[in-house]
Each structure stands twice: as structure tokens, then as C-alpha cells.
């Protein structure tokens, strides 16, 4: 399956929120929709979920208009919330039931997912008696209840502690491995980087970058190297390299250098090593996702 949005436009009053958003995500893959606050992430997701309609543009599944009712969709809205005064078991069964499961299946899945989340003790508790982190886990359970073919998570990591974030990552990764479509929005780059193959950077209603994250990183200049120098000899290394006519800088206890040609890399490094500077490690510079994100979105601050 391939979920695709094409040229989405949406205005709220005079405010243009989406100005032609395109991206696609396929089965067995996940797409991280990245963007700063107000970039249009939630609006895009709500249009996909048919919370409201786009002014123009299409949401397609395998090339045909996407009809939500025809698929099992797991959805975690940005606005989290459940009935504060109803028992957790009751409302999870209800929500699963509304998403098309029979009552028996709804109950079985509720028990299975609450067990997975370690929340079996709270079955007959009310939501407002739960801690915030546990409420978040319940929300994730709700999204997973109907064994979704398409999982759409809006800012799933907000409010999760590292342990719960790990659980969420595990579940998302399993879902991807099962060949499902996962689409989520976030501005927490470190999490996205860990399991997202594709990203789409959304800024001010436009997609600035839609790419395979590893390929994109490799597209950066391979002549930019980073050295890890032992014994506090960074200055010596910079001095040696500059002496050889190579641009080098000491940045955060690492030495960044720009070799003229990739073929020269090993020669330069062995020369440096022979000069008595202890090289403990080296790698080709790759920007973190955060660097990429800032690079693409900061000029519009």
C-alpha cells in the first residue's frame, strides 16, 4: 500500500496553513513529518484523517481517493484525551468497537495491549486517576487496539519519559516490520532518527525536504572529516594540518578537517599520525537530523 498526499492546500480564514503539501509513505515504511510549531503538521494529519477537508488537493491510497472507513487505522491525535470519568476498560472496548472490532475482539485486544503497556492494574480505574505518562500509554494502546494497517501518530513522543519512549519506539518498529504504514509527526529529531527511513520537513505549509534520511546525510560533502585526537593534542593536529595547507578547526574537542580530495584522506591521516599526534578515531562528517532540520528551517525564523 502507498499513502500519498498531493498538493494539499488549506486556509483557515485569511491564514494560509498548507500551501501545496506532497509526500508519500509505503507499507513497511515510516515517514516522519518534521516541522516547527505551526508548520502545518497537525493540519495535514487531520486532513488525512478527514477531520476536515482540504481546500484542494488529494489524499490517495494506491492512487485512489483514501476512504478511511475501508481500512483499519490507528490514530493518536495531537489533542490527547479520554473520558475522565469512565472506566478504562469500558472506554477502550468502546473505542475499539467504534473502529470496527466486535465486542469480544475489542475486549481481547484491549486486554492484550494494556498488558503490553503494563497497565493491567488500571483496567477498572478511571482515566483521571492515572499519571500523565500512563495516560499517554493508554493513548498509544487506543491507537493500536484495532491492529492498524495504517498507523498515524501526531507528536507521539511529547510527554513520554525515556523508558516509555523506548516502549513506543519498540512498538512502532514492530508495526513497521509487520509491513504496516506508519506516519508520524514530531519535532524531537533524536527519536525520529532512530527508526525513520524517510522524512518530510514541513515549514510554513510547504514541504522543504522529502527524502531518505541516510541518503540525504550521505549527500553531504564526503571530504569533511572529524578526528578524535587523544592526549589533548588537538592544537598540534590543527597546526600540523594547517601547515600542510588543509583547512582544519578545533570544534568541541574534535578536529574537523576538509581534505582536498577523498583519495588523499588516508595519506593525510598517516602523515598526521607519524607526526606524533595520537589519532583515536576518525569518521566522515554526517550532519545529525537536527542539523539538517535547523539548516532547512532556520532561514525563515
Amino acid at each position: 500500500m502507498r499513502l500519498e498526499v498531493k498538493q494539499l492546500y488549506k486556509n483557515f480564514g485569511d491564514k494560509e496553513v498548507l500551501k501545496g503539501v506532497d509526500f508519500a509513505v509505503e507499507s513497511g515504511n515510516s515517514l516522519g513529518l518534521l516541522g516547527r510549531n505551526g508548520a502545518g503538521k497537525t493540519t495535514t494529519i487531520r486532513i488525512i484523517m478527514d477531520v476536515f477537508a482540504a481546500d484542494s488537493g488529494d489524499v490517495l491510497l494506491d492512487g485512489k481517493p483514501f476512504r478511511q472507513g475501508d481500512f483499519r487505522i490507528g490514530y493518536m491525535p495531537e489533542e490527547r484525551g479520554l473520558y475522565p470519568k469512565r472506566l478504562i476498560l469500558d472506554q477502550l472496548v468502546y473505542l475499539a468497537n467504534l473502529r470496527g472490532l466486535s465486542l469480544a475482539d475489542a475486549k481481547a485486544n484491549t486486554l492484550r495491549w494494556l498488558g503490553r503497556m503494563g497497565l493491567m492494574d488500571y483496567l477498572n480505574k478511571k482515566v483521571d486517576s492515572l499519571s500523565k505518562g500512563n495516560q499517554q500509554k493508554i493513548q498509544l494502546a487506543v491507537a493500536m487496539l484495532n491492529d492498524p494497517e495504517i498507523l498515524i501518530l501526531d507528536e507521539p513522543f511529547s510527554g513520554l519519559d525515556p523508558v516509555n519512549a523506548k516502549l513506543l519506539k519498540l512498538i512502532v518498529r514492530e508495526t513497521i516490520e509487520e509491513g504496516k504504514i506508519v506516519l508520524f509527526s514530531s519535532h524531537q529529531m533524536n527519536y525520529v532518527e532512530e527508526f525513520c527511513k524517510d522524512i518530510a520537513i514541513l515549514n510554513q505549509g510547504k514541504i522543504l525536504l522529502n527524502t531518505d534520511i541516510d541518503k540525504h546525510k550521505r549527500s553531504y560533502d564526503r571530504r569533511h572529516l572529524v578526528l578524535d585526537i587523544g592526549g589533548g593534542a588537538n592544537k598540534d593536529a590543527v597546526a600540523y594540518l594547517t601547515g600542510k595547507g588543509i583547512r582544519a578547526e578545533d570544534v568541541k574537542q574534535e578536529v574537523h578537517l576538509y581534505v582536498p580530495d577523498v583519495k588523499d584522506t588516508l595519506g593525510i591521516l598517516s602523515g598526521l599520525s607519524e607526526s606524533g599526534v595520537p589519532i583515536e578515531g576518525y569518521r566522515v562528517f554526517e550532519p545529525s537530523l537536527e542539523d539538517v532540520f535547523v539548516e532547512y528551517t532556520s532561514e525563515t525564523i
Partner: peptide, 16 residues
């Protein structure tokens, strides 16, 4: 209003 105020509504309206 409770469904709306507690933000349960988006889960409901997207499935029902």
C-alpha cells in the same frame, strides 16, 4: 461538551 473538553472528540469523530 465533556467529550470536546476532554479532547476525546477527535478519536470519536475520526472513527464514527
Amino acid at each position: 461538551a465533556t467529550e470536546k473538553g476532554s479532547r476525546t472528540m477527535e478519536l470519536l469523530i475520526t472513527s464514527t
